[in-house]
Design a protein around this nucleic acid. Structure first.
Length: 699
RNA sequence: GCGCCUGUAGCUCAGCCGGACAGAGCAGCGGAUUUCUAAUCCGCCGGUCGGAGGUUCGAAUCCUCUCAGGCGCGCCA
């Protein structure tokens, strides 16, 4: 197993040579070694001579000569060549490439090719996916889920101690709406108004329409007043016994209407429509425990506040039911997507809610006013109350606000609302502390959309100011752009509704199935329907994921069905096909073993011969895998890995066209090529797996 | 108003911590098939890198200004 990549090796050699020449420690020198853009200039180039010439007191070309004469490369490369103003071109020796390829160990139980795990293990948190579980997962959740998963996989593969954290939204007002929705289910079910789930869902849809924006205002108002009257019973303690008993039945599945996500979602939509209606702000709901009525528009909010104090056991019970149902659905979506998140990675808002009070208290105690007559030693924060809200104001060393509002005034980070409720900044701060102090994290990675940059900057600054995140801890916000439709607007259905993730995957599968059937009728082949469906399932998910990953994550990406399921170009089907072709060769090699039995296994010890340029290009590409991984891990850019597997597949198909394997001219060539196939298959498989894409053995 | 992101070929995008004539894919045109899976490969066509200055031996890349688009800017997350 080699400790370093080709790039690292050459970098080390050039640093040493330049260090000698300039009489400086090699570690302080950036030798500017890059892969060559054009193969005519060799495989790698050192560009340091031009920039260092002045410091060395000679002409760039002259310095290049000296470096080239000094650098020790004879064991790995041809004699370096100097070109242009002072480029030093390096062409690796074919026999060295061959021996290096030959040094890649055979596949073990967990195949890591020749890539050693990092020497220095650090604990890394990857916070990703994090949906609000009051609603079904939709396209808005896909990017964080998919991108975060790749980051977690790559870092874990390279040897980091990765802890996945799914910071689900399971405690906010929206969960209050679901709870209130369940209460409505209870009323309707026990009132005998809805016989089954279908009737109930229909009822909620109709009732939501009655209070929606399209309804007649007078009728709407009357309806809302009646609802407000009815809902006051939701706050009444006398009904607790019946409501509590029913919840037990509901949870156990003994009610006529089962606790499914569909039921809960329709109930949620209804409550949401009620609270969103313009009149709801003025309509009061009588609370027997309070002198003042609660505005209908804020009833869910109120219920969450009540829950917080655990005053109503029933609401907590309803919350648990809603959470369970929703998380089950979320988990099955992760499984369908092939995402590694498990139930035990869920650590959401509810986990932190009883730490929030202390979080605010501690911030208040530690972020105190500073003496402004002297510059501060570092950026700092100050907690102040403003209009009843608790705010963290963040300043730089010169006491200038780090953040400003549209009027140019200091923009605080709110950690407690004037009504006493906490905000997501509070939870994020409680979580950052938990992750550093209790989970021992040294690198915290948050995968969320780019619109939240300001929030992350603020709360990172606050976490630093209060001292929970010291300098050794890295806080990283991994941003990504939006998913756009082909009309350049955020992706929606034709009617303007958000697209559920399950619908998206269904459609992907259908489209892939159509493409497969197309192909087959073109070729005159016929496959069993079940086979087409199972292929479509695998390729459909792969296509969606790959399309999301292949572009630089920061740019908005244009969602195109035709492009993602295309069989040509940089797409998942192309990659999977390349892999399947390889597997096919390796299978046949194993099958026609014969007396010599030159199957994949025995070939994996064969000597590598790089006679053809396509073989050489493939070999070099294989050895560059870890360069790609290093970039992905450092910059958290999955698209670099996509580019790599595409380039590898591209090199492979060129090799495939030019170099017969099973029909190779002689046994030595055949074994060498078989081994190249084996290594390419393993590299491609590993690359795809790190992208969260399951390779397919046969297409 | 301030801040962040994005402008590269007809389309979708790489390249952006400075390096050789700016690269892919798709689309278009022309070739290759008694296939180790043609869901492939090869060739051609196609670009004032939004614009203008500046720094540099060298700028798509760094700086300044500017134009265009998107997003964000205290009690939602």
């Amino acid at each position: 197993m080699h400790a370093e990549s080709l790039l690292e090796l050459l970098r080390g050699r050039f640093s040493a040579a330049i260090g000698d020449i300039l009489n400086q420690p090699a570690e302080q020198i950036d030798p500017i070694v890059r892969p060559s853009a054009d193969s005519r200039f060799g495989d790698y180039q050192c560009n340091a001579a031009m920039s260092l010439a002045r410091a060395a007191g000679c002409k760039p070309r002259e310095l290049a000569e000296r470096i080239a004469a000094r650098v020790r490369l004879d064991d790995v490369a041809e004699a370096p060549e100097i070109a242009g103003p002072g480029f030093i071109n390096v062409r690796l020796r074919d026999d060295w490439l061959a021996s290096r390829i030959g040094g890649i160990p055979q596949a073990g139980a967990a195949d890591r090719l020749d890539i050693p795990p990092r020497a220095r293990v650090q604990r890394v948190i990857v916070d990703y996916s994090s949906p609000n579980i009051a609603k079904q997962m939709h396209v808005g959740h896909i990017r964080s889920t998919i991108i975060g998963d790749v980051i977690a996989r790559v870092l874990a593969f390279l040897g980091d101690d990765v802890i996945r954290q799914n910071h689900v939204g399971d405690w906010g007002t929206q969960m209050g709406m679901v709870i209130l929705g369940i209460w409505h289910v209870f009323r309707l079910e026990t009132g005998g108004r809805c016989a089954d789930a279908a009737a109930l869902v229909g009822h909620f849809a109709a009732a939501a329409a009655e209070v929606g924006a399209g309804a007649d205002p007078a009728a709407r108002r009357a309806r809302l007043v009646a609802l407000g009257e009815e809902m006051s019973q939701a706050l009444s303690t006398e009904r607790s016994a019946e409501w509590g008993k029913w919840l037990g039945e509901f949870e156990a599945g003994r009610t006529r209407i089962a606790a499914t996500l569909e039921v809960l979602t329709s109930a949620y939509r209804f409550v949401n429509a009620v609270e969103d209606a313009p009149e709801s702000a003025e309509i009061g709901v009588r609370d027997p425990l309070r002198s003042r009525p609660v505005p209908l528009a804020r009833l869910s909010n109120h219920i969450v506040a009540e829950m917080l104090h655990a005053r109503h056991e029933e609401e907590l019970h309803a919350w648990r039911i809603a959470r369970e149902v929703s998380l089950r659905e979320t988990q099955s979506m992760y499984e369908r997507l092939g995402v590694l998140l498990r139930p035990e990675d869920v650590c959401g808002e509810s986990f932190f809610h009883d730490r929030l009070e202390a979080t605010v208290a501690e911030l208040r105690g530690r972020l105190i006013e500073r003496d402004r007559s002297q510059p501060a030693a570092a950026p700092y924060g100050v907690v102040r109350d403003d209009h009843g809200a608790v705010c963290v104001f963040l300043y730089d060393e010169k006491h200038e606000p780090q953040f400003r509002n549209p009027d140019g005034e200091a923009l605080p980070l709110l950690i407690r609302k004037s009504d006493g409720a906490f905000l997501y900044a509070t939870t994020d701060l409680a979580a950052v502390r938990y992750r550093i102090e209790e989970l021992g994290a040294r690198r915290l990675i948050y995968v969320t959309d780019a619109r939240q940059v300001q929030h992350f900057r603020q709360f990172f600054a606050a976490a630093r100011a209060v001292g929970w995140a010291c300098h050794e801890v890295s806080l990283e916000h991994v941003t990504f752009g939006s998913v756009m439709g082909e009309d350049r607007r955020p992706l929606k259905t034709r009617s303007g509704a958000t697209i559920r993730l399950s619908e998206l995957l269904d459609e992907a599968e259908e489209r892939v199935a159509a493409v497969i059937r197309d192909r087959q009728s073109a070729v005159g082949a016929e496959a069993a329907d079940a086979e087409v469906r199972s292929l479509a399932r695998a390729i459909g998910v792969a296509a969606v994921k790959y399309a999301d990953l292949k572009n630089d994550r920061n740019s908005d990406y244009v969602f195109s069905w035709d492009k993602m399921v295309a069989l040509q170009g940089n797409t998942a089907p192309y990659l999977l096909y390349a892999y399947a072709r390889l597997r096919s060769i390796l299978r046949e090699a194993a099958a026609d073993g014969g007396p010599q039995h030159r199957d994949a296994a025995s070939a994996s010890a064969a000597e590598i011969v790089l006679g053809h340029t396509a073989e050489r290009a493939l070999a070099l590409r294989l050895l560059r895998f870890r360069e790609a991984l290093a970039v992905v891990a450092a910059d958290l850019t999955p698209h670099v890995l996509c580019s790599y597997v595409y380039d590898l597949s591209s090199d492979l198909t060129q090799f495939y066209e030019a170099c017969p394997v099973l029909k190779a001219p002689d046994a030595r060539t055949r074994d060498s090529r078989l081994r190249l196939c084996d290594l390419t298959a393993r590299t491609l498989k590993l690359g795809l797996e790190l992208l969260g894409i399951q390779p397919i053995e046969r297409i």
